[in-house]
Design a protein around this nucleic acid. Structure first.
Lengths: 116, 116
DNA sequence: AGAATTGTCAACCATTTGGTTGAATGTTTT
DNA sequence: AAAACATTCAACCAAATGGTTGACAATTCT
């Protein structure tokens, strides 16, 4: 499915809004895991974890790939980047003092291209 | 309300998962605005915008303050920082090549303190 | 005091979310 | 081919979400 920038950010931030899903991303960050391995730490059913994986997959934050009888879960970290960039735009508001913001204001020619 | 780190990230990412709310944050970033000014660009009712402001406020991404008969909306950008930091942890997975990751793996002593 | 303005609250509604259980699918093993 | 294993799908449920409208509250203006 092709998504607009806004819709892509919607799905990424939505995927990240649940602690279980954020935890799953950590779990698969350093190495691929099977769905069963991913599910093991959680108290919920395998089907529930599979649904969380659906949410992460539709945000394209993971990919699933069948390998033999297993489904392998792999992080697609590069697709976190739009979220990180969206947030990075706000760094100036917490990094700088308010009067520094003032000078910023004068120089700002809106180089952020209407996403969000 | 005091929230755990995970709950705080839940509420921040949830607040950001809606395009209207992200747009509102942009609208109030450079200067404070009244609720009415914030609501004007959107086709929905003022009450609907007020609810979006509730979501942003409970994530502490904005503050509302009465000034005369107006409610003034102000960005609290510093509270985006936990989200930005959570995401920053993943930069290594999109910045580096896979073999650089390998060296990373050996040196990693998990300096990220169990949030998320 | 009364009217106008600004915004919130309450009740309601449809849709989405996050979980469950049980049946179904795809793959490997016997 | 049958059994076992790994995972998804479908149906269901309660709670949360995102919107509406109308009543209410706080403030200012006349």
């Amino acid at each position: 499915m092709v998504k607009s920038n806004a819709a892509r950010l919607d799905s990424i931030f939505h995927a990240l809004s649940d602690a279980t899903r954020r935890s799953i991303l950590r779990d698969v960050a350093w190495r691929e895991r099977t769905v069963g391995e991913v599910a093991k730490p959680y108290r919920m059913s395998l089907a529930a974890v599979s649904k969380h994986l659906n949410v992460l997959e539709s945000a394209e934050l993971i990919a699933r790939e069948r390998r033999g009888s297993f489904q392998i879960v792999r992080l697609k970290a590069q697709n976190l980047r739009p979220a990180e960039e969206w947030l990075a735009w706000y760094e100036k508001f917490w990094n700088r003092q308010l009067d520094a913001l003032q000078t910023y204001l004068e120089g700002d020619k809106d180089e952020h291209s209407g996403n969000g």
